[in-house]
């Protein structure tokens, strides 16, 4: 079976630190996998390896069956990425940023379609024609979400995507993830937010010191149990 996202004995050794030790992971279409862990646990390194931003020391990462390291450009057609802090061109408007990134991804949308994506991401209508330099972090995050959604990617790689979003916007984002997942998009989300992981995740993984120490289906745990499990591994 071809997984949308797969890691085989994926290992990353930095000169001063072993960031990831032998990660094995398979994520199917429509699955929302939430990766929990403290700062420095290896979550961002894992995302960077899937993005092809860093090269693995050993093992391999696969997106849609293609090895990332040898298909760095092709795999980006299948993935969308939302970093913890979405940064955009500050002198362009939200609409212009979305148009630019969408066109780079190969999509040429009409203005009405772009406005619809921004509205879906929750960006206020009055903000779309304002320069991004005037946006709050949450508003930039929403443009980042719109960019990811407009890409119609098979995989969403999310690194603390709700950081900077207010609770209402976070809930809307969770709802959006559920919709995308139902449409067959695989989601890989690194987060500190246990409750969000429980809410939207189909599986949750706990990472400690570069090692994936536990993976559970969220359906078998309630929020408290997940929190206890997480704390168990963190101590």
């Amino acid at each position: 079976m071809t997984y949308i996202l797969e890691a085989k004995d994926l290992r990353k050794q930095y000169p001063d630190k072993l960031a990831l030790q032998g990660l094995n992971l398979q994520i199917e279409a429509g699955e929302v996998f939430c990766l929990l862990g403290q700062n420095g646990a290896g979550k961002s390194t894992t995302i960077n390896l899937f993005l092809g931003f860093v090269q693995p020391t050993a093992g391999a990462a696969y997106i849609n069956g293609l090895e990332v390291a040898s298909n760095a450009l092709r795999i980006k057609q299948y993935l969308a990425y939302i970093p913890e802090n979405v940064m955009l061109y500050p002198h362009l408007t939200g609409l212009e940023n979305l148009a630019l990134f969408s066109s780079l991804a190969g999509f040429k949308y009409k203005e009405s379609e772009l406005l619809a994506y921004l509205a879906q991401a929750g960006l206020p209508v009055e903000a779309v024609q304002r320069r991004v330099g005037t946006y709050s972090k949450g508003m930039r995050q929403k443009v980042g979400i719109a960019i990811a959604v407009a890409k119609h990617a098979k995989v969403l790689l999310l690194d603390e995507p709700t950081s900077g979003l207010d609770p209402k916007a976070s809930n809307e984002f969770s709802e959006l993830l559920r919709q995308l997942s139902q449409q067959g998009t695989a989601v890989f989300m690194a987060t500190h937010d246990i409750f969000r992981a429980k809410e939207v995740g189909t599986r949750v993984g706990i990472m400690r010191e570069g090692e994936l120490v536990d993976v559970r289906p969220t359906a078998l745990l309630n929020a408290n149990e997940l929190e206890q499990l997480y704390l168990h591994y963190m101590h």
Binding site: L51, F53, L79, A80, F101
Partner: peptide
């Protein structure tokens, strides 16, 4: 901080 988002596109 724009580069990660830029290079996450097929570019």
């Amino acid at each position: 901080g724009i580069l990660p988002l830029l290079l996450a596109q097929p570019v």
